Computed example of a mutant assay.
Amino acid sequence: MTTFDDRQRAFEAKFARDEEMAFRVTARRNRLLGQWAAAQMGLTPAETDAYAKSVVQADFEEAGDEDVVRKLLGDLTAAGVETDDATVRRALDEQTVEARRQLMEAQ
């Protein structure tokens, strides 16, 4: 039974690592998205930092990315930036790749 127990513990440890990495990638991606949107809106560096944090917090409202997309679209539109859903989703995809790259380099 010890081989089975060892294998089970290994799978559980891998699952935990994978979930932690997914969470970190999502949080980093949201921060990068906030910085991207802040640049579009012409915010100052202090405002950019605060806005990026608010985008990270927005992701905790509901499961999935819709809450983040909704926040970005609303804020960009309110700031008078011409954008659409496809542009925000493209930025989301690009920042996901960048966040994953940054975290892989940090390891």
Rank of each mutant, 00 (worst) to 15 (best):
T3Q: 11
L72E: 08
R100D: 08
A37R: 07
R7P: 00
E12A: 13
F11Y: 14
R70C: 08
A79S: 15
R100G: 06
Q57L: 14
R9E: 13
R29H: 11
L103K: 03
Q8V: 14
Q57K: 02
L33D: 12
A39Q: 15
A46Y: 03
N30A: 04
T96Y: 02
D84F: 08
L103W: 06
R31G: 12
M41Q: 03
E19M: 11
P45C: 04
Q102V: 05
D49S: 01
V68T: 06
M41K: 00
D65H: 05
D59R: 03
E12S: 06
E61S: 10
M104H: 06
L72S: 02
L76W: 06
Q8S: 03
Q40W: 00
A38C: 03
P45L: 03
L43C: 07
A78K: 11
D75N: 00
L33M: 08
E66C: 06
W36N: 12
V55L: 05
V55N: 15
Q95D: 00
V97P: 02
L76Q: 05
A13S: 12
E12N: 11
E94A: 15
M104W: 02
K53G: 05
G80S: 03
A37F: 08
M41A: 09
T26S: 11
A46F: 00
A79H: 04
F60G: 04
D49V: 09
A52S: 11
T87M: 02
S54W: 03
A38M: 06
T77G: 00
V97A: 14
R31Y: 14
F23A: 14
E105A: 10
D5S: 09
Q57M: 03
K71G: 09
E20R: 14
D93N: 14
R90E: 15
Y51L: 02
R7A: 07
M104S: 09
A99H: 05
A99Y: 00
P45I: 07
A91E: 04
K53H: 09
N30K: 06
Q57I: 01
V56I: 13
G64P: 06
L33F: 12
T87E: 14
R17A: 13
R17E: 15
E12M: 08
E12Q: 08
T77H: 10
R100T: 12
P45R: 11
D18H: 11
M41H: 00
Q40A: 09
E94G: 04
V88P: 01
T48D: 00
Q35S: 04
M1Q: 13
